[in-house]
Design a protein around this nucleic acid. Sequence first.
DNA 1: TTGTAAGCGTTATCAA
DNA 2: TTGATAACGCTTACAA
Lengths: 358, 358
Amino acid sequence: MNRTAKGSRVTIADVARRAGVSAGAVSFALNDRPGVAEPTRRRILDAAAELNWTPNARAKSLSQSKAFALGLVIARRPELLGADPFFPSFIAGVETVLAEAGQSLVLNMVATPAIEQETYRRLSADGRVDGVFVTDLRAGDERIALLAELALPAVTLGRPDVTSPHPAVCLDDAHGVAAAVRALIERGHRHIGHVGGPLTFLHSRSRRRAWAEELATAGLPANLGAVADFTAAGGAQATVQLLRRRPRPTALVYGNDVMAIAGIAVAQQHQLRVPADLSIVGFDDITLAEHLHPPLSSVRTDPFGWGQAATRVLLELIAGESPPDLELPAAAAVLRESIGDCPGQPTRKRSPRVKEKT
Amino acid sequence: MNRTAKGSRVTIADVARRAGVSAGAVSFALNDRPGVAEPTRRRILDAAAELNWTPNARAKSLSQSKAFALGLVIARRPELLGADPFFPSFIAGVETVLAEAGQSLVLNMVATPAIEQETYRRLSADGRVDGVFVTDLRAGDERIALLAELALPAVTLGRPDVTSPHPAVCLDDAHGVAAAVRALIERGHRHIGHVGGPLTFLHSRSRRRAWAEELATAGLPANLGAVADFTAAGGAQATVQLLRRRPRPTALVYGNDVMAIAGIAVAQQHQLRVPADLSIVGFDDITLAEHLHPPLSSVRTDPFGWGQAATRVLLELIAGESPPDLELPAAAAVLRESIGDCPGQPTRKRSPRVKEKT
DNA sequence: TTGTAAGCGTTATCAA
DNA sequence: TTGATAACGCTTACAA
């Protein structure tokens, strides 16, 4: 801890005294702004280095009316987060950009949307953050209007279904799902089911829509849809129900990998072989996916890059610019051995080990 | 956004004016401290409520020289975090305590221990946090001394192997591992392997030691140990190597569930049935564990409770108290169908579906 | 019980 | 190019 002889923390005044200048000069020199002679600047920077002084973030915050921090409010039950690869990677991406900007991330995990609202209000009223990320967009999301009302800069991950004044950073997840469904159709599957997440989430909707539309394009009915809650238990239960339907699906597409893995287990309990009797596709492409038996086909997004991009946009917004919406490279299907030809439906030979970068 | 007619943010002065008192009085009333008459207090609180005023956290921070925030620095590659259930639950526990204390969590994810040190220094120098959590303790952990030098209040998760001035909040993970190994021995297993995490981590060490000691107690050699990196790929590779050993292990205990699941896949690729030919035990008890086929035996800890406890201790420490070390309930083995009797070694019949709460 | 004024450590505004 | 001086919005001695 850097302290002066008197035992108090080193302040800008100490540096100024040592360099023989005023505090204002130190401030100017440190934020390299014009109006300070080169020799003086040197002297000041040397003094700062000798005293090992860094401007106090709290004081800076007060005088500049800025928090130098961004907020991320996550509204999920923790058991849902445990196996979700999105946030860790997303946050890692955020951090890389934030670190070089000398800013911090304030994280808030809340259990319910009600507390979520309150959290945004408090974050804003307290002035703890300069802006926030809005993730897991919901249908008619009230946060859009709330944040506008609070005049709290925000960036949304994806485009809301309501009019929004906030810049959006988008990553098309539908594309990868569509590619996966196409791959299944190519392999002769005609009864392709879908186990999605709650349809309150826009990302759940777009993934399901991609599934339905791809089937429609192929002239197939999208009548094997189930909604689960992204948990292993929910995925298992939905799988059981879909496997009871007749004609039984020969392929199942899931809203995330956790549900897909639980689905594989259910299939095996039902004496169904994957992929011989049932093909499975997940979403997220968690690292575990390719180390399962059989390796799980999935759809890969780029949460890390998403975090970086969203952070840059948010920082620009806070800096007073008007960043346009941003579209990141779409999610891609990663096809592995969990999918195969439709049983009893001979099609042309093809290797499933193709990574479609479409 | 709460603004006065003049367009500026509502401050304590506005409230004071409206209530016809001084700013000091407002401060006293709000922090309910003695020395303000009841009717006055009422008037002040009413005025504050009408103006929808909340004290600005930045100003409070500066005047009190406190950040009202705690720091969590995570040094892990993001792909390692993706499937790790610990941090989401831990953070959720932290948040529950922090929220009611009106404080925030500042999260820092870094890639390497070098940046880690720098991060702690910056956090301290900038005064962004009042204290930090130290997770993933390592052998001879330099952070212990660093934080002492920085005079930054800290709480360690577990007890360091170096002298530490920081309070420790401990959860004995060895207990559950030992119970799981005992369960395997009871089922007749004599060749029980272990795939642990990097031995730089104290938790990796204690889990491995528990395995070795339990074997020693039974008069069995602990000669089937492998070290991996907590990833699926690493777990798979270590499993391959252990399965090459002769005599081949009939049971494998893992340092986390991800490696264990990858291990099951490797076994299946080797035409080994789980548990008929090979018993498997993981660690963490992720929610997916019981929805696998076969359901995965694991060791359950309580990251949520750990987060709550550590936060309380850290807040006490920051408040100037000297909280003692805290020991939480030990981890418990959760036995499921992934373990069974040793092949070719008839033992007494017993159901594996026993949750040992030892 | 209440008001006044001095911090907290910066940045920003003006004279000099 | 520099140095006072006033914000920033709150807490807290100290007077009244």
